[in-house]
Design a binder for these strands. Structure first.
Lengths: 295, 295
DNA sequence: CATTGGCATACCGAAAACATATGGGCCAGG
DNA sequence: CCTGGCCCATATGTTTTCGGTATGCCAATG
């Protein structure tokens, strides 16, 4: 079964004439006549009654016509959909983000995406650093919002912004009185840490910061998310060094203070597979830049 | 857009490999590879990611695949439906019948048809003689049940049975006492007639019967249907000469009596356009023969 | 470093489709 | 009654496209 034949058949059925249909199809009449007869031979039954004034569908022809039009439309819609997806006008983008960015970035990012790519399905999943990397690699997420970036040969990275580290302290702590906290004041205090540095690059950035200033802070607890970290800070378990944007989700009773003489910051990055060439990714990147800039 | 390409595309997508798909399609690998690339060129975007271990759909490919399978199925279904209609396994048959046969034939005919051609839509319309002919000619009915047959160069006829003429009399009439009525007893009595002979061949058959026996019956009323005729007979307006099968729909108070020494009968026939070649008509004919035989 | 598995390219023969030319049936108008 | 026009079917040559074989290229593997 060939779509060309079906297309010809539909044309002849609509024009009720081989000649008229041939004209509309920009071809000569005889080959069209031949194609119709071949179609009839393939089906094994006449599809038209030949009269002296054109052609007329038989019952079998009407049965075919009812499906043929739909099949043609569906095929055309298929290529159209494929083109639209390839052009980034339709499709699906799945975003893996980290908890720390949820409150700061998503509220700005999502409307931006909806405006830029209205026909595209958006999916969001809050994922740990290691899961984001795995899901990028197995393609079950399209892009990841990371802080800091994922480093992997298969993964491409675009920096879209940076966040200074700040100190999260209970509002009742004496440190909260300072407008900024000198690094030296952290010496020896208990730290609420994120997962081990080998599992979470954000954590290793904090460690590097402390090491560079030769500060030692005993790890009081390890937690999964900045939210848990802030809860423990509020409970008085220790202090946390967190990206500034985390304060958007901070509970009452926690304040963020800049770290004096520490200009360290942590990158916010968009990461995706090097071999994903969807134009959606470019668009996503632009949206993410805008969203972070307005943060 | 060619269905062959779509078929190939679906095969490769399912096999996730050009080689495997080529094997399943009973063709060599290189031409299949070429066809896939042509499809990609036509769409203007890659549909597969080529890895070292086979092929993998891109998002655009998935969008196409979703429609392609349906389009293929629809096209296949279309030819299947056309074949089924041509073979008389599906389709539609529209039957024009006359009132006089409704009670006698339809209750036996319809179940017979349902058994023989279960997938076929049945339509019935009670039509006058002239309308049956017109509707046959313009194809708005497929077959007509007639008594007697339609004569027309475009219309083919098959006799499926015959009905003797009988006399319809009120049960209180003295004629009702006779087991059969001699023709001579009709002389001069008022007749309830069907439409004028030039409009209704059944009526002209009755006139011929009377003429042959040299009986004159004044026409008391002309009615459209045997049912009306029987109502008037019951009202004492006159007598009616009707096909025997009409007694099935006779009201209480009407009896039918054979006409002694008149062996006239009227044919029951199935009529259809000479250029209608649907096998449904053959099947219908068989069913009608059975139904009439069991009458 | 060689081998293997898988897709892409090159080239050739075969099949299918299209165009031009022509034939034949059916209605209409002279 | 005949003739011209309309429309579909058939015939034939040319061109396009498709499928097969041979081969190249790349990457992963041992």
């Amino acid at each position: 079964m060939d779509l060309r034949r079906l297309r010809y058949f539909v044309a002849v059925a609509e024009a009720r004439s081989v000649g008229k249909a041939a004209e509309r199809l920009r071809m000569a009449q005889p080959p069209l006549s031949v194609q119709i007869r071949k179609l009839e031979a393939e089906i094994g039954a006449p599809l038209f009654r030949r009269g002296t004034r054109g052609m007329d569908l038989t019952d079998a022809g009407q049965a075919l016509l009812a499906r043929a039009g739909e099949a043609l439309a569906l095929a055309a819609d298929g290529v159209e959909a494929a083109r639209a997806v390839a052009a980034g006008k339709r499709g699906r983008i799945s975003v893996g983000y980290m908890f720390a960015l949820a409150n700061a970035v998503l509220p700005r990012l999502i409307p931006e995406l909806r405006r830029s790519i209205p026909g595209v399905d958006l999916h969001f999943a809050e994922l740990s650093a290691s899961t984001r990397e795995a899901r990028l690699l197995d393609r079950s997420v399209t892009v990841a919002l990371c802080m800091p970036a994922i480093h992997h040969p298969e993964i491409q990275v675009a920096r879209v912004g940076a966040q200074p580290f700040m100190l999260a302290v209970p509002i009742r702590s004496p440190l909260a009185r300072l407008s900024s906290v000198p690094m030296a004041r952290l010496q020896g205090r208990p730290l609420i840490a994120l997962p081990r540095p080998d599992q979470d690059p954000a954590s290793s950035a904090v460690m590097a910061l402390l090491r560079r200033h030769q500060i030692v802070m005993p790890v009081a607890s390890r937690v999964e998310t900045v939210h848990s970290a802030m809860s423990l800070v509020l409970a008085g378990e220790g202090l946390a060094i967190l990206p500034a944007c985390a304060q958007l989700g901070a509970p009452r009773g926690i304040v963020f203070r800049p770290l004096r003489d520490a200009s360290d910051s942590i990158d916010i990055a968009v990461c995706w597979r090097r071999d994903s060439h969807s134009p959606l990714i470019r668009t996503f990147l632009k949206c993410a830049e805008k969203a972070v800039a307005r943060m």
